[in-house]
């Protein structure tokens, strides 16, 4: 894929993101941040790609650390989002029982 094709993909994705994010209610901005934080751990792909090509040992050490850090980002982010969103879910059940 050449640069201009990549740029097209980038810009179009940015448009999708723009329209989705403006629709999100302010009360869910904190979960939005932590979910998107977790997703940004997708950078792990880059880290694994580094490990794939590792010719020298220094590069593979750095790659290993990079994979670990990205993995912390992924699982930490999802863990926090899960806890946060559980509260929003939890509450719905309480309200339902109150109505009954």
């Amino acid at each position: 894929m050449n640069f201009s094709e990549e740029l097209i993909v980038f810009i179009l994705s940015a448009f999708i993101g723009y329209y989705i994010v403006w629709g999100i209610t302010p009360s869910l901005h904190a979960p939005l941040m932590s979910v998107s934080n977790a997703i940004s751990g997708i950078i792990i792909i880059g880290a694994i790609a580094v490990l794939n090509t590792s010719p020298s040992s220094l590069v593979s050490y750095l790659g290993f650390i990079a994979v670990t850090l990205a993995s912390i980002n992924i699982f930490g982010g999802f863990g926090i989002s899960q806890r946060m969103l559980q509260m929003f879910k939890h509450k719905k059940n309480i309200r339902v029982t109150k109505n009954e």
Partner: peptide
């Protein structure tokens, strides 16, 4: 994520990076 996507030529990184970048900027 998006720039790393440009470095290693990976669409998924570019798409996801753009989404998060926009979301953070809007916030």
């Amino acid at each position: 994520s998006a720039t790393i996507g440009f470095v290693i030529n990976n669409q998924l990184l570019i798409i996801t990076g753009a989404l998060i970048g926009v979301s953070g900027s809007i916030l």
